[in-house]
Design a protein around this nucleic acid. Structure first.
Lengths: 219, 219
DNA sequence: CAATTTTGTTAGATAGATCTAACAAATTAC
DNA sequence: GTAATTTGTTAGATCTATCTAACAAAATTG
């Protein structure tokens, strides 16, 4: 059984590997906020447990069992976030910190019960998929709002970044998942978009924001 | 801030001190399932943090701040147990293990929300009082069933022991808190009691069981 | 391609929580 | 009240997760 620390390394590896497949020691050190020597020794240790493949001066890759272990921790994290929002009334900007701790609890019944109470949700409050009990993840490929064209109508479906600050920004603009947006115009100078939703008042969203919003195109 | 390990020592000290006020190193070692030297060094460490008073070869006592810290951990444990039973449908025999882990989560909002959702319960699922946010405990002095007399009617109010085995025994006899029992007879030979509840079928309870059942006398 | 920068490794130290072995104090028993 | 037992302490070791300093390999850059 993985220690809490090991679980956190697995999770970081999983998240970093999502794009690249391979993860550098320095990347992982930065993500985990520890020194490179610390990562070096931890990676050797994870290798002994069969969770990663690693050779000197080479990037780290998760083994199949490492991927599954990571996905199951992420499952607990995302189920917890969803439970906190849906069943306990927390805002989507409040749940990450709590889930970060709850995800390390070893009690399958506890998470199964959350899952059941919520009717087996597929997505967490930020639109990220919840891995199933086998650690499989159903990847959904949304478009970033920044890739859309003037005149398109889209539904806000997920976020590429769920930092508290970003979530609070979205709250301040009354933007939440499921909201229907229409793209009024795009400023060619800075790629900012003018959109409307909830009836009328139009809102300008910077390119940075648009890149972090994942949408489904309606028309 | 106390580590998880320190929190567990504080909790054990609190529970052991409840009767005696003072706690021996050997008692604490047994409770924590570690060796005496381990306790010795941890107690010195807790002393440096101001949670206990300790002198060589003397028993350990919690300071006021140690008592408060312990009570607040116990608050989180008991709120969690109650939440698991009342809001998540767990049986009273299933919740201890989970609460043992959840109690170490640092997230006041999380426990406040549980508390609020349950309408600020005063007792946990085993009838033990839930300390308030200041760490104060409202002690209720129930009687053990074994102290009662033939003919008395009582309400099952709490347990002195909440081991899984005992809880499963009570489940098998359909005994739960709030149940009204009438004492039909007491066997002078072994102090076992014959009681009725739920209408008719009478049940014999050994002295050991009767000592672990706390009741309120009705008549 | 040689020099510089970045990335990664090794060695050795530290802090927390644990252990065993050896010894010392306190308590119990006769 | 001495002997035996129990209880408690000290010393020293181990394991995990971390660090810094020093060095080595790889990548980048002019």
């Amino acid at each position: 059984m993985a220690s809490q620390t090991e679980e956190n390394y697995l999770k970081s590896l999983f998240n970093l590997a999502n794009e690249a497949g391979e993860v550098n020691i320095s990347e992982l050190a930065q993500q985990m906020q520890v020194s490179m020597p610390t990562v070096n020794s931890m990676v050797k240790n994870l290798q002994k447990s069969g969770w990663v493949i690693y050779e000197k001066y080479r990037p780290v890759t998760l083994t199949t069992s490492g991927q599954k272990a990571a996905a199951l921790i992420i499952r607990k994290h995302r189920l917890t976030e969803m439970f906190l929002v849906n069943k306990m009334g927390f805002g989507w900007e409040e749940v990450h910190e709590i889930a970060e701790q709850v995800e390390h609890i070893h009690a399958p019944k506890f998470f199964d019960r959350m899952d059941e109470m919520m009717g087996h949700p597929l997505l967490d409050p930020h639109g990220s998929p919840i891995p199933d009990k086998q650690g499989r993840i159903q990847e959904i490929n949304f478009l970033t709002l920044s890739k859309c064209k003037v005149g398109q109508q889209v539904i806000l479906a997920a976020l590429t970044n769920s930092s508290t600050e970003f979530l609070e920004f979205l709250n301040s603009r009354n933007l939440s998942l499921g909201k229907e947006l229409k793209i009024i115009s795009i400023e060619t100078y800075d790629q900012s978009m003018v959109v409307t939703y909830d009836g009328h008042p139009s809102e300008t969203l910077s390119e940075k924001v648009c890149e972090r919003l994942l949408v489904r195109v309606l028309a």
